[in-house]
């Protein structure tokens, strides 16, 4: 097993003339919760989609467990997209069944336990749920896999503070010890306490990659405050 769960080497992605990722070098180790932080349009989603094999790099490469994203890496990467992608007509228990069929590492009991603890009725159709509840269901499905790498694109964007707490707590409780969780967001204040490391991304370049407590130690302020300085408009 490679020491790194994700590695970018000179990763570049261009959309026409626009450069979304600009020659990125990045190494992520195992057993960590890492924040991918940057303002809107900085390249967070592009980076995550590239790591998932949904976008092909224009230059350089991204490796998951030393492999180019593809069939093999999808078995060990659990991905939460920034948009709803689940069929709206399906019932929650049907989705759980579908995930069990798709992913060998999916744990249906874990999913049902979390669904129950949130007082969600598993026989409900996705379409009838509120936006926040849909997000919870999606995250439950993604976190119920025993993956090695979780790529969560804005998991806390559109939910109320109580739900946000629940989501963060379920991340702490559910990731397995050697797994790494990469969370993209711009809501740093809410999540910095649960992060090991932060990666700041700006205009497609990595500005900073450091441990949260080292940053707080050396700067004497929160990562949120540092972020506001680095990205001052």
């Amino acid at each position: 097993m490679s020491e790194l769960v994700l590695e970018c080497k000179g990763l570049t992605k261009k959309f026409g003339r626009k450069t979304a990722l600009d020659n990125i070098d990045l190494k992520l180790g195992r057993g960590k919760i890492i924040g991918l932080l940057g303002p809107n349009g900085s390249g967070k989603t592009t980076l995550i989609k590239t790591a998932n094999g949904l976008l092909a790099p224009t230059g350089g490469k991204v490796l998951i467990n030393d492999k180019i994203p593809g069939r093999e890496t999808k078995k060990i990467v659990s991905y939460l997209p920034d948009q709803t992608y689940l069929p709206q007509w399906m019932k929650i228990d049907g989705l759980i069944e579908m995930f069990s069929d798709f992913y060998a590492d999916f744990q249906p009991q874990t999913a049902y336990e979390m669904i129950k603890s949130l007082n969600i009725n598993p026989s409900e159709v996705l379409k009838t749920l509120s936006k926040g509840t849909k997000e919870k269901v999606q995250l439950i499905l993604v976190m119920s896999r025993r993956a090695q790498l979780y790529l969560l694109d804005e998991p806390i964007g559109g939910v109320d503070p109580a739900t946000r707490d629940y989501i963060l707590d379920s991340i702490i409780k559910n990731y397995s010890e050697n797994a790494t969780v990469l969370i993209s967001t711009h809501l740093i204040n809410d999540i910095e306490k649960i992060l090991d490391e932060v990666v700041f991304i700006k205009n497609g370049s990595i500005m900073l990659h450091n441990s949260v407590d080292d940053l707080r130690e050396s700067e004497g302020k929160s990562v949120d405050a540092i972020f506001r300085e680095v990205f001052k408009c």
Binding site: K32, D169, I172, I194, L195, D196, V212, D213
Partner: peptide
Amino acid sequence: VRDMASEAGVNPNTMQR
């Protein structure tokens, strides 16, 4: 460690440390 981390709302590695 994980339960304490969860209760404090902090990273489990930080709690461990």
